[in-house]
């Protein structure tokens, strides 16, 4: 089971996460009396990078219309800010007393804080990106349920013209997301459901077309034609339900993380 659910998050956090465990092992006994080097310069570099991240994070919030991101991201940025304070404290303390157990503990605390803060920022941002894809999926679902408004061929042309770009974008985004995931099971499921949507959509459009053609030649008194019309209507509704189900499954999987093991139990 991968620890990080996307390749991007994994590439950013995995190296430092491994190093932190080394630091913890070495400092397991903070009173070991070993001397620490002057860490002012590397701590300063972390501080500068963190300042930049905090600035970019606030800009991201300002430019986003995602209310959840606007609420969660600043909290994660504060965690990074707090972690930097611990690192600064560690640096000052260890400079005056290179054996200081307090300084060493502050160093570990700061490093852990950086990892947790950056992790929270990445998760918050990632969830916001997922919400954008989910929004696209929901737009496609909305389109599925307005077929009742299609009364003639011109309407169908307009319908297809409007649906195509949203559906294409949804497909592209889900496809890209699938490649980003580290969890193989989630990836497989996304591929399966997306393939279903792709293969069902032409049949769905055809069913509307056949329905309209049949409706155009419909004789009020012909019971046999009436029967055929009902069958076509049923087939169209069945396809709508199927595509709706597939997209809802895509949404569900998009919102899963590696930690949602119970979902797959």
């Amino acid at each position: 089971m991968p620890v990080f659910h996307t390749k991007t998050i994994e590439s950013i956090l995995e190296p430092v996460a491994q190093q932190i465990s080394k630091l913890v092992i070495l400092h397991d006994d903070a009173d070991n009396g070993n001397l620490m080097p002057d860490l002012s310069l590397p701590v300063q570099v972390v501080q500068q990078a963190a300042d930049n991240l905090i600035r970019v994070g606030h800009e991201t919030c300002t430019n986003s219309d995602d209310s959840l991101l606007k609420r969660e991201l600043p909290l994660a940025l504060i965690r990074v800010e707090e972690a930097c304070k611990s690192l600064q404290e560690a640096s000052v303390t260890l400079k005056s007393d290179p054996k200081s157990p307090f300084g060493k503990r502050k160093l570990i605390e700061g490093e852990r804080g950086i990892l947790q803060g950056v992790s929270a920022i990445l998760l918050s941002f990632d969830e916001s990106e997922v919400r954008k894809i989910v929004h696209l999926c929901k737009q496609v679902i909305e389109y599925l349920f307005i077929t009742e408004l299609i009364e003639k061929m011109d309407d169908l042309v307009t319908y297809v013209k409007n649906l195509t770009p949203v559906l294409t974008r949804m497909t592209r985004e889900v496809d890209a997301r699938e490649k980003e995931l580290t969890h193989q099971e989630h990836r497989n499921k996304l591929v399966q459901h997306l393939e279903q949507v792709k293969s069902l959509t032409p049949s769905f459009i055809s069913s509307i077309k056949i329905y309209l053609l049949t409706l155009a030649s419909f004789q009020q008194n012909d019971s046999q034609e009436k029967q055929v019309l009902f069958c076509i209507q049923d087939s169209k509704d069945f396809l709508i339900k199927r595509i709706n189900y597939e997209i809802k499954e895509i949404i569900r999987i998009l919102q899963l993380t590696s930690y949602d093991e119970d979902e797959w139990a």
Binding site: L13, P15, L23, L35, V45, V46, A50, V118
Partner: peptide
């Protein structure tokens, strides 16, 4: 995205800091 690059810079810098601290410790242990 800018935020991902900025986050990467922070973890890289944090990695360098850990290396500086642990290398010195290893030498002394």
């Amino acid at each position: 995205e800018q935020i991902l690059e900025a986050a990467k810079s922070v973890t890289n810098a944090a990695g360098v800091l850990i290396k500086a601290a642990t290398t010195a410790q290893k030498e002394l242990v």
